[in-house]
Amino acid sequence: MVTDPVIPPLLEVRDLSIHYGDKAALSGVSFDIRQHEIFGIIGPANAGKTSFLRAINRMDDFVPGMRVGGQICFAGRDVATVRNLYALRRRIGVVFPLPVGLPLSIYDNVALSPRLRGVRRRAELDQIVERCLTRAALWDEVKDRLTSLGSLLSGGQQQRLTIARALSQEPDLLLLDEFSIAVDPVTTMRIEEVLKELRNELTIVLVTNLVQQARRLADRTAFFLGGRCVELDATEALFSNATQQQTIDYLGGRFG
């Protein structure tokens, strides 16, 4: 993949470090995430992948004791100093591994974010809800019960509802943390197809424990281990000839 030097990166990470209390979860991470790429992050548990995603949309504000050092720039703007944090978060959609169906109807779950940004017209909301649910591969299953509670769906359905909700923000950046953990393989494939298409509209950071998923989707992939970014390369290059022994071991299934 050739990058156009004229298009600046969407996310610039500079010497990022994350601590919980005195314990370091991530240190010395620096790279750019380009516009309209799917950026894969793989690595064993405890690698700091989730912590990284948290730092991007300032979720550290919620976690007592979590400190972020270094710099993350979103669209050229240091996220640590943005004056309207909520505007930043609205531009970044997040899906965490545990599905969270809010205790609202399915429809209201997906319409929440558009409503927050001021969409009032019913027709427009209907359209957004249908589009987002379809993209999350959930529309067919719930179109006849949009008024029932989102928190009563099955685990995998709630996960897709969470994805639909993230999409309804119409974000510039979508952070997916092991999104397929509770989703069956067939549905996972359908969502993966959608993600590939979404690349035209937005940028995706995909944290996954399924290395093959990163291989299928990501343009570039980073390998995290023990709080460091060990290696970062175009996905095929990383998978076919990684330069670091740790990466080779992990991809070969020899640890982690």
Binding site: C73, A75, R83, N84, D172
Partner: peptide, 25 residues
């Protein structure tokens, strides 16, 4: 970091929207 003061274009507008305090804020 690529952000330099005075950059114009869509990206600059985007960055500004993060600093604009809207009604909700």
């Amino acid at each position: 970091v690529s952000s330099t003061p005075g950059v114009t274009g869509p990206r600059a507008a985007e960055a500004k929207s993060l600093d604009r305090r809207d009604r909700a804020w």
